[in-house]
């Protein structure tokens, strides 16, 4: 993520997203997805903003939404992060099919090359190493994502060359 995007005023981002997607409770997950996509994470300050918009629109209908409702949704889904991540995020599939097709050796290599444990972000904020459950491309396992790029049939030998593509 570019640093400029992060300086964007959170309140105006929330307004823009909610103008587009609607200010109803059932739009909460698309709204959170959009904020997460724009900033790379969901800042805590976004939640009260979202609540204000929903309440303003739905007060007359008696819909009650608290910040905690929004936090409970934001903290539940794996594609959301509540903290800023590295510039590049690796999501390694750790489910059984990829594991059987040779995933363990690839993950060991990734950890060694990056010097990171699962869930960690490097000190220079270049990399975050995350694991994920099956992402539905198991016929080319083992697989991992770097940001939105998918790599399949990965071998330990190919790991350094893949990582080298990212600045």
């Amino acid at each position: 993520m570019e640093p400029e995007v992060k300086d964007l005023d959170i309140a105006s981002l929330v307004t823009k997203v909610m103008d587009e997607l609607g200010s109803t409770r059932d739009a909460v997950i698309p709204i959170l997805s959009e904020i997460n996509r724009a900033l790379g994470y969901i800042p805590a300050a976004a939640l009260p903003e979202i609540r204000r918009h929903i309440q303003a629109q739905q007060k007359q209908e008696g819909v009650f939404v608290a910040d905690s409702h929004l936090y409970s949704a934001a903290s539940f889904y794996q594609m959301f992060s509540l903290e800023p991540l590295g510039r590049h995020v690796i999501r390694f599939c750790e489910s059984a099919p990829c594991h059987v097709e040779g995933g363990r050796e690839v993950f060991d290599t990734l950890q060694r090359e990056l010097g990171l444990q699962p869930g960690e972000t490097s000190a220079d904020r270049k990399w975050s190493l995350l694991t994920t459950s099956c992402i539905g491309v198991c016929s080319v396992g083992p697989v991992f994502l770097v940001d939105d790029d998918l790599y399949g049939n990965v071998t330990p030998e190919r790991v350094p060359e893949i990582l080298a593509k990212y600045q």
């Binding site: 489910s95 059984a96 099919p97 459950s133 099956c134 539905g136 491309v137 198991c138 016929s139």
Partner: peptide
Amino acid sequence: DESEPGTFKDR
């Protein structure tokens, strides 16, 4: 929502 590991038929 297909997320059962090893399943990608619905996709």
